[in-house]
């Protein structure tokens, strides 16, 4: 129905991007003084803040402690003003709870949890502005915050979405494309090994298209990974020079 609008005859998308073009990524690390690690990440108009606390002693009920590894605790929360329509609750609804669980699984796979038995690592993400790909932006932001906190990772985790319009795969879909009824494939990968740690698909398309769309998403992940690595390097060099200067 909306296929013609989402991809013009010239092969451009609704926001003027090419099908394989990512949105602009901007990121800054260490924006909060009190958290152990924090990051702010923008993918186009989707803006996310992430904070990491820990590893620290288990808070609350000690029964959550795992004897051989760290317990990863995540909270996904959305600002009430982040979307077109005002949200009544920032968290606690089913969608946020589900997102929190997915984040926990994703990061338990990436963090070297075996190094910190009986402890806890908190990852909190806050969506300030939502314009599609909220989950992927959260994963990327949380990963940057973990790097800022110096938590040992097996590999960076990067996440990206892909869609399919007029048999053309689109990478990094925005809100209009997402709500226009086209399918959305979300993938989180460990870029070094290429392993998939999270995947979800909404709507439907023929299975023959799957490999094409999945490849697009993975390519998107790897591209984002390269950009984020550059930002990390820049941040660390800056830290290094300021340390040496003092």
């Amino acid at each position: 129905m909306s296929g013609t609008e989402l991809l013009s005859d010239q092969g451009l998308r609704i926001d003027g991007r090419k099908p394989n073009e990512l949105r602009r990524i901007r990121c800054s690390l260490g924006i909060f003084a009190q958290a152990d690690g924090s990051a702010y990440l923008e993918q186009g108009n989707t803006k996310v803040l992430a904070a990491v606390y820990g590893p620290h002693e288990i808070r609350g009920s000690k029964s959550k402690a795992l004897h051989d590894k760290a317990f990863v605790n995540c909270q996904y929360s959305t600002a009430t003003f982040s979307m077109g329509e005002r949200k009544r609750r920032p968290r606690g609804d089913r969608k946020s709870t589900e997102m929190s669980t997915h984040l926990e699984e994703t990061f338990a796979a990436a963090i070297r949890t075996e190094l910190y038995p009986r402890s806890q690592i908190d990852i909190f993400v806050e969506v300030l502005q939502a314009d599609g790909g909220n989950y992927t932006t959260c994963v990327n932001a949380a990963m940057m915050a973990l790097v800022d906190a110096g938590v040992p990772l097996k590999d960076t985790v990067v996440s990206c979405t892909a869609s399919l319009v007029k048999d053309t795969p689109l990478v990094d879909v925005n809100h209009v494309e997402q709500s226009g009824g086209s399918p959305e494939l979300v993938v989180s990968i460990l870029p070094h090994s290429g392993e998939i740690v999270y995947m979800s698909l909404t709507q439907r398309f023929h299975i023959d298209h799957l490999s094409k769309v999945l490849d697009t998403a993975i390519k998107g992940c790897k591209d984002i990974g390269v950009i984020l690595k550059e930002i990390m390097k820049g941040h660390l060099t800056k830290l290094d020079t300021s340390l040496q200067a003092s």
Partner: peptide, 16 residues
């Protein structure tokens, strides 16, 4: 008015 204390501020604000 609606005030939300984000858990980003301190882990004590998690959940409710």
């Amino acid at each position: 008015f609606f005030v939300d204390c984000s858990a980003n501020a301190t882990p004590e604000f998690e959940g409710r």
